[in-house]
């Protein structure tokens, strides 16, 4: 499981995160809700070792500390990120993107099984194996990005606003896929602005405001919280 303690990040004088602590267990989906600029992407970057700012705090993965490790070693330890903007290899084929996902040593032994699982989850990738990833539609690229992250056989999967730019139908498909991923035993930390749909599939959630955690709880409790409803659910009934 993933445990972050007291993470703080500043970009020069600007303090983007302060005292953020959270846990994500295997087999659960945790959603992190926050407005634009709240620091959601900064948090995921800090956890995966790719943040440009100065980071402090501790991060443990299954009891082992990953604080300050280089990003490739963090992936090796079992944390995989699907970044904002997807971060696929646009000039390489879908199959090559997926193969690269299994680059870490921890992924090699189970590569075949993982690939079968990814293709079962996203059957479209099977038909498009030899297509150049950059020529796919936004939704398909998101599948490649998630599939590639799954290929590294992570303990915890981090996703930065995967629903961004997807139609409501695709969005629904995506969240159902995440639910299936969780059932394989992977933990999922999902950063989202789409509060309604993400809370519906999540087990727990956190609210991030101006770089601080201001709320936490079970997903259904958050969905019924009047303050959350006002801020993230447009005041409507959840």
């Amino acid at each position: 499981m993933l445990e972050a303690r007291d993470i703080a990040v500043s970009y020069g004088l600007h303090e983007a995160l302060n005292g953020v602590s959270l846990t994500v267990d295997r087999g659960e989906i945790v959603v992190m809700l926050g407005a634009n600029g709240a620091g959601k992407s900064t948090l995921l970057k800090a956890l995966t070792g790719i943040c440009e700012g100065s980071v402090s705090g501790d991060c443990f993965l299954c009891g082992q500390t990953v604080t300050g490790l280089k990003p490739d070693l963090i992936v090796e330890a079992g944390l995989a990120l699907v970044p904002e903007g997807r971060g696929i290899f646009p000039d390489l084929s879908v199959a090559e993107n997926l193969t690269l996902g299994a680059y870490p040593a921890r992924a090699r032994a189970v590569e075949k099984e993982t690939l079968a699982r990814v293709l079962e989850l996203f059957p479209k990738l099977q038909d498009r194996r030899s297509q150049i990833a950059g020529t796919m539609s936004g939704g398909e690229q998101q599948m490649v990005a998630i599939g590639r992250a799954m290929m590294s056989n992570p303990d915890i999967l981090l996703l930065d606003e995967p629903s961004l730019g997807l139609s409501p139908i695709l969005c629904g498909e995506l969240f159902r896929a995440l639910h299936k991923i969780k059932e394989t035993g992977m933990g999922v930390l999902l950063v989202e602005q789409n509060a309604r749909q993400s809370l519906a599939i999540a087990d727990r959630g956190y609210i991030l405001e101006n770089g601080r955690i201001t709320g936490a709880g079970k997903a259904d409790a958050l969905a019924n919280d009047p303050a959350v409803q006002r801020a993230y659910l447009g005041g409507a009934q959840a």
Binding site: I50, V75, L81, P90, P104, A107
Partner: peptide, 14 residues
């Protein structure tokens, strides 16, 4: 992969 995108390459453990 590094030629195409070093930023993404580190995310797959390279």
């Amino acid at each position: 992969a590094v030629a195409v995108s070093p930023g993404s390459a580190r995310l797959v453990g390279i």
